[in-house]
Amino acid sequence: MENQKTVTSPTPNGINSIDSMPRDLSELIKLSTQEVHERAENTEFMKGFHSVTLTQLKLLLSSLYTHYSALEEELDRLSSNPCLSPLCISRWQLHRVAALQADLRYHYGADWRNEAVLAVPAATREYAERIHEVAHSNPCLLISHSYTRYLGDLSGGQVLRRLAQRSLALPPTGEGLSFFCFPEVSHAGRFKELYRARMNSLELSDLARGQVLQEAQTAFLLNVKVFEAIQKMSVVPPPRSSENGALRNRVPPPRTHSIQSEKGPPTSSLSASPALRLVLALCFAVVTVAVGIYAL
């Protein structure tokens, strides 16, 4: 009886036998990341993208710039690595850093480098650090990050661009949203097929495949953390409870009008001031004399 080939390290979602799952690496990644992919799509930030605010868009673009700067730096450095070279052949068609620089310049102005870098949440830096870490420890794991980033953004970019453009009334010519456009890719569907075919041609051991699948899950989870951080940073917090209490307990200012006595009719302010009655009497006398003189 022929020995069955098994994965040395268990793959995600409890799939352990090579014979029980597809052989194509692209299909394996899609299958093993389905659950975490849905989790990323169902974050509050992504579900509310139809009404994205400018603050949220700027945080997203700043985070993407940080991620892609790390990814493209490492892919350029490792472009001759056998695990990555088939995917790097057409990397110039996918490169996002230049487009993101243009978007950040549009939204932040001349000092965009300082402002954009300072704006990103800690989860964004964690994602970039993970890319650099695996690039040095196990370069084959960049397959996972390339797949989740490039094919994900190529697939959903046009929809997100239209939503952001409508929500923020950005120019129809595309300024501020260059990231979501891939002008070097003439047909997204055919390009993705070619990219997957190159992935599937990679000669990886069963152990390496399992690691790539696990890293793809990690990439999605890092994305979830970034989306949650952006949502949290862009929400204006309500007044603190102590401030609410102070507002509720604030003593109202004293009324300026005279307070009616609890007993009897209202007291006239004229009768309450003899000095005022005397002044008015004198004024009346002066007016009477003046009128008499004018009549003469």
Rank of each mutant, 00 (worst) to 15 (best):
Lys232Pro: 02
Tyr65Val: 00
Val212Lys: 10
Thr256Gln: 13
Thr66Val: 07
Gly14Leu: 00
Leu59Met: 14
Arg190Leu: 13
Glu72Gly: 05
Glu74Pro: 01
His107Met: 07
Asn223Thr: 12
Arg166Leu: 06
Gly109Gln: 04
Ser269Asn: 11
Gly245Cys: 02
Glu74Tyr: 03
Glu73Asp: 06
Leu104Ser: 06
Pro265Asn: 04
Ala135Val: 09
Ser32Gln: 04
Asp103Pro: 04
Pro265Ile: 10
Lys30Ile: 14
Leu71Ser: 06
Gln214Leu: 08
Glu27Asp: 04
Arg149Pro: 09
Gly48Phe: 01
Ser80Ala: 14
Arg255His: 06
Arg161Tyr: 04
Leu25Pro: 00
Leu170Gln: 09
Leu31Asp: 11
Ser273Asp: 15
Pro252Arg: 15
Leu282Trp: 08
Asn138Lys: 06
Val134Phe: 05
Ser186Lys: 15
Lys263His: 10
Arg149Gly: 05
Arg248Gly: 11
Asn3His: 08
Lys30Arg: 15
Glu35Met: 02
Gln56Phe: 01
Leu177Asp: 08
Pro265Ser: 05
Ala285His: 09
Glu175Met: 03
Asn42Ala: 09
Asn223Ile: 06
Ser62Arg: 03
Cys283Phe: 15
Ser146Thr: 11
Glu243Ser: 07
Phe191Cys: 04
Glu193Met: 08
Arg130Ala: 07
Ala119Asn: 11
Gly174Gln: 02
Tyr65Thr: 01
Phe191Gln: 06
Arg91Ala: 08
Leu170Lys: 03
Val134Thr: 04
Leu104Asn: 00
Ala98His: 09
Pro252Leu: 14
Pro121Lys: 11
Pro265His: 00
Arg240Ala: 15
Leu25His: 10
Ala123Cys: 05
Cys140Met: 15
Pro237Thr: 00
Asn81Glu: 12
Ser167Tyr: 00
Glu72Met: 09
Tyr106Glu: 04
Leu141Ile: 00
Pro252Tyr: 09
Arg77Phe: 13
Arg162Thr: 10
Leu160Thr: 08
Tyr294Lys: 08
Arg209Tyr: 10
Gln214Met: 11
Thr43Phe: 05
Ser242Lys: 09
Arg255Trp: 06
Ala290Gln: 07
Val235Ser: 13
Tyr65Leu: 02
Tyr106Trp: 01
Ala285Trp: 14
